[in-house]
């Protein structure tokens, strides 16, 4: 279908964009890459009074390293993230995940901030932010604030962002040298949203991080499974117990694409594979 009528504004500055949001409240929608928003408009799932196109806010795009972290601007396109040498070198797990994000034409336009603000629980970037303990930088009428990713995703397609706020970017703390990783996802076709996906990090201290996508209303950090793995030093027995623990701590949805039981099963299989990949990289 065609989108419903709306007004359109293309601010040239962040202040102007914030002012438009302040004036229009929940009648306004931010337009970044538009790869989810435009589809929802075409389906008429949304009917905003005005679209605020932030694509001219060039300062919100870019990837920088400093102060023990990687900072990624909200307007950074998926393709820029996918092809960033800095990301490939510092956060190879994120680089690997980007290879699973949609198709080139979508990655050329879609943005990091858009993916996080849209908060599809089956998308890769929200889960990767949970894995990497991201901090989100947000601007609003009262100035800027920071939100831990672990407080950001509040439900399927719901976040802690206010109607009058704009996501500026994310900060990802550096990983300890020697951190091993694994990423596995399963989708019916390349580029589709995953039925389930898993990312793991194993730090040299033995600490394990495990994040999942597509298996709940939000991305999940499987804390009980992480504890089993750390306690059991990634032994086969510990992996088995971790899989049991994570299958208990997720609540997958039944939908057209897969049943909850299948997704729960898949989460365990993918976790076992991702951990095996991480163990191989440790050796």
């Amino acid at each position: 279908m065609k989108p419903p009528p709306f007004d359109y504004a293309r601010p040239e500055s962040l202040e102007e964009a914030l002012d438009l949001l302040a004036r229009h409240g929940d009648e306004a929608k931010l337009l970044a890459g538009g790869q989810s928003l435009m589809a929802m408009l075409n389906f008429r799932l949304l009917a905003p009074a005005i679209l605020v196109d932030i694509n001219r806010l060039d300062r919100l795009a870019g990837i920088e390293e400093g102060d023990g972290r990687l900072s990624i601007g909200a307007l950074t396109r998926h393709h820029a993230l996918e092809t960033s040498d800095l990301v490939a070198e510092r956060l190879p797990v994120l680089h690997a995940a980007m290879g699973h994000v949609a198709h080139l034409a979508i990655r050329n336009r879609g943005t990091v901030g858009g993916s996080l603000a849209h908060a599809d629980p089956a998308a890769e970037l929200p889960a990767m932010m949970c894995l990497l303990d991201a901090t989100l930088r947000v601007a609003g009428p009262a100035g800027t604030r920071e939100i831990s990713v672990h407080d950001f995703f509040t439900g399927a397609l719901e976040t802690a962002l206010g109607d009058d706020e704009i996501l500026l970017g994310i900060d990802l703390p550096s990983l300890p040298p020697g951190t091993a990783w694994g990423f596995e996802e399963f989708s019916r076709r390349a580029g589709d949203f995953a039925l389930a996906g898993v990312a793991v990090l194993v730090e040299p201290t033995g600490a394990v991080r495990l994040a999942l996508l597509g298996v709940d209303e939000t991305p999940v950090r499987a804390r009980a499974a992480e504890a089993e793995l750390a306690r059991g030093a990634l032994s086969d027995a510990a992996v088995g117990q971790a899989v049991e623990a994570l299958r208990a701590e997720i609540s997958p949805l039944d939908d057209l694409h897969a049943g909850a039981d299948y997704r729960r099963h898949l989460a365990g299989v993918l976790t076992t594979r991702a951990l095996a990949a991480a163990r191989a990289r440790l050796a």
């Binding site: 359109y8 293309r10 337009l31 538009g34 790869q35 435009m38 589809a39 075409n42 679209l51 196109d53 694509n55 393709h79 198709h103 080139l104 034409a105 979508i106 050329n108 336009r109």
Partner: peptide
């Protein structure tokens, strides 16, 4: 993908892009 065009050299869905953009 039927409507894919190049915008400033990059492929993009012309059904997910507004002309005004």
């Amino acid at each position: 993908g039927a409507c894919t065009v190049l915008i400033d050299g990059d492929s993009a869905r012309s059904c997910l892009t507004l002309a005004v953009q």
